[in-house]
Computed example of a mutant assay.
Amino acid sequence: MDKIINHAVLSLDFWQDTVTYEGCAMPTGTIGCEVLNISAEAIETLTPPCDTMNRLLQGMNTGTVDLTLLPQVQGAASGILSFMDVTRPFSRLSNSDFGKKLADVFSAAYLEDARDYLQLSQQEQLLCTLTGQHSRAAQLIRMTQVLGHLSYSLRQYKDALLPFARQLNEPGHDRTAEGYAALFGQFFQEEPTLSDGNPSWMTLTNASVQYVSAIRPGAAEPQLVKRMHYVSFVGMFRSDLFEGLCVGHAPRQCPICGRWFLTTDARRTKYCGGLAPGDKRRRTCRQIGNLRGRAQRELAADHPIKAVYNRRMNTILQSTRRGKLDAELAKVMKKLAKDKMLRAISDHSYASTRYEQEMTQEALLAEAKRRMAL
């Protein structure tokens, strides 16, 4: 039976806290999280080719196949494939095989078979399903449905699940499986309906479950995995996202690049590991974030480097008030202290060796006198 009808590109293998898709094992929730990064503009580029697919589908729903649509449908399939080639998680597909299959499915031979199939009675069509006759027609109808609904269903996914992800991303939220479950219950608290403004229908997934013994990528021995077969890409994506929540995996938005990434434990991972946008040194967001965090810590009033500086400024001020230092000498000492503090912030070696020695009252006083004597 055909690979697409077998749902090979619409199947996930779940085992413990990992999911396998198209021969690649990853933390559960990865592909569902990746969909959050597809921009509205990118989804909009799918609208014209999906509309073309839907015109073909509308004819099929009335029992006819317009063969004159073939060139337009082939162009639409090519446009959708181009989108998939450069867009995660679709780019995880074995696109060479998938592209070849699309070229085969959207061809004159398949459209002609679908035309003949749709002329049969419902009873005859059911018999064909059981016997495998008109398999080309079944493949064409199936793939037209999957691709025709893609842009609309991606918009629905983003509209419903981005607000949920943003609540998960709020500071102080309990990033554990229990915390995710609590928020899930609050966000999806209504009975699932198809009405606008009720995202709870997203919790329903049209899928079949199969338990199989499979050798996972990188493993030598088979494991018993839960294989789920879906009828659409978006149904598969949200199932993966929710399965991830069950094991403590959740999306988080990187404050540097704005992209969503998956966290797999309760640690406060703040930055993603992707390249920071606009950084000429090609550093990751995590590297940039660590530098920012260090700078913020070093500028904090209670940072050890700043604390040494603050103590010294207080003693200089007190000595000036008591008449032990004249104003000019105190001014030079303050300038020296500030310069040393700034140097310590940028020079770890200096901060860990000579900084505190040079910041004593006696050392600053002696250096200030030497400066004034020049």
Rank of each mutant, 00 (worst) to 15 (best):
V35D: 04
N6Q: 15
A137I: 03
T45Q: 15
R297E: 10
F164N: 07
A76N: 05
M143Y: 09
I141P: 03
I345W: 00
Q133C: 07
L224Y: 09
G323D: 11
S213R: 08
S78M: 12
F14N: 02
R282L: 08
Q72S: 05
R136L: 09
V225T: 03
C254K: 02
H134I: 00
T144S: 12
S349G: 02
L317S: 14
L127S: 13
C272D: 09
Q145R: 09
F261W: 05
A337P: 08
R281T: 00
Y180E: 12
D265S: 11
L336Y: 00
A76M: 11
T205K: 03
E112W: 01
Y117E: 09
L10Y: 15
Q361L: 13
Y157M: 06
E367A: 15
A330C: 05
I215E: 10
M53A: 09
L10C: 05
P222Y: 14
F242T: 10
G185R: 14
R354G: 08
S346V: 13
V146M: 08
P217W: 12
L183A: 12
L168G: 04
L204T: 14
Y355K: 04
Y152G: 02
L183R: 13
G293Y: 00
M228S: 04
M202P: 00
R312F: 00
S107C: 05
Q357F: 06
L291Y: 10
